[in-house]
Simulated scan of single mutants.
Amino acid sequence: MESVEDRLKASASRAHLADEIRHSRWNHREAAAVAEILQTTVTSGTDLRTIELPDETHFGLRMAFFEAATFALRWIELHHFNRPEDLGPLADARVYGTDLHGEYAGWGYGYGGWGLKSHSPVHCASGRVERDCMRVPTGHRRGADCITLATFLYRTPGFRGCSFCGGAVVQRLTDEQHTHYARFCETSTARPWQAAKRDEWDEPPAGDGDSS
């Protein structure tokens, strides 16, 4: 079982996938081939959309691969980074999703394992079954965006993420990126956006004082 810290780190990817394989009944040859791709092909510079797993790869093994290579956006505390320069080496971390630029109607969904596994179809009040989350691309095809974390944070004001999966996943961090992230969070005094926003709402509006 990964720790909260390890699930952000690329160096823990192989161990994560190996653990998933040990506890599954996937074909040994298939699992070994997928593990080899993770070990030899995936680096911080790899665009995961270009990774082609064997066609016969089991659906669960395919999701386990992407979960080993990425983590859900909600796991990283981005409220600490108020300025682009604060990101340091994190600026180049890759973010994946279906609508990271906020160009289309609706919500963005995560790419790969986390987008697919995070939720089951939701029955809306109208009786319609919402299946958008289940259509997240797991191959290199239109609809899957890839941008840097710096671009995602400071140049995509129109982004709206799915409330289940968070709308995006982040490629696991290199040791340098993770060290910077851990140190910055340790020294930061920034409060989560939600808490800061609640404080704004609780403040009395200007001009409400007694003017007599």
Score class of each variant (00 low, 15 high):
residue 49 R to L: 07
residue 161 G to A: 08
residue 164 F to R: 03
residue 61 L to S: 00
residue 97 G to Q: 04
residue 35 A to R: 01
residue 123 H to G: 04
residue 11 S to W: 06
residue 44 S to C: 13
residue 134 M to R: 14
residue 5 E to N: 11
residue 170 V to T: 00
residue 187 T to S: 15
residue 126 S to A: 13
residue 90 L to N: 02
residue 41 T to D: 09
residue 74 R to V: 12
residue 58 H to N: 15
residue 136 V to C: 15
residue 186 E to S: 11
residue 136 V to E: 08
residue 131 R to T: 15
residue 69 A to Q: 05
residue 54 P to A: 07
residue 70 T to V: 13
residue 174 T to C: 08
residue 8 L to P: 03
residue 207 G to Q: 01
residue 86 D to E: 10
residue 72 A to N: 11
residue 8 L to T: 00
residue 77 E to W: 04
residue 61 L to W: 02
residue 60 G to N: 09
residue 68 A to Q: 05
residue 137 P to G: 07
residue 140 H to P: 03
residue 184 F to V: 05
residue 103 E to C: 11
residue 53 L to Y: 05
residue 69 A to K: 03
residue 180 H to A: 10
residue 148 T to N: 03
residue 118 S to L: 07
residue 145 D to Y: 07
residue 69 A to M: 09
residue 97 G to D: 04
residue 62 R to K: 15
residue 202 D to F: 08
residue 110 G to T: 06
residue 113 G to L: 06
residue 114 W to S: 00
residue 168 A to I: 01
residue 77 E to H: 12
residue 63 M to H: 13
residue 46 T to C: 08
residue 72 A to Y: 01
residue 180 H to D: 03
residue 30 E to S: 11
residue 92 D to Q: 14
residue 31 A to D: 03
residue 92 D to R: 14
residue 100 L to T: 00
residue 81 F to C: 06
residue 102 G to R: 09
residue 166 G to A: 01
residue 12 A to P: 00
residue 54 P to L: 07
residue 192 P to M: 08
residue 52 E to D: 12
residue 121 P to Y: 10
residue 29 R to L: 12
residue 195 A to D: 06
residue 149 L to K: 02
residue 86 D to H: 14
residue 76 I to E: 02
residue 156 T to C: 15
residue 114 W to Q: 03
residue 57 T to V: 07
residue 58 H to D: 15
residue 179 T to P: 00
residue 173 L to Y: 02
residue 122 V to Q: 04
residue 43 T to R: 12
residue 211 S to W: 13
residue 160 R to E: 13
residue 151 T to R: 14
residue 9 K to W: 05
residue 6 D to G: 06
residue 188 S to M: 10
residue 91 A to M: 11
residue 144 A to K: 05
residue 102 G to W: 14
residue 55 D to E: 15
residue 27 N to K: 08
residue 67 E to F: 11
residue 102 G to P: 10
residue 135 R to W: 07
residue 83 R to A: 14
residue 119 H to D: 05
residue 179 T to H: 10
residue 111 Y to A: 04
residue 176 E to A: 15
residue 181 Y to A: 02
residue 20 E to D: 07
residue 35 A to E: 04
residue 115 G to H: 10
residue 79 H to E: 10
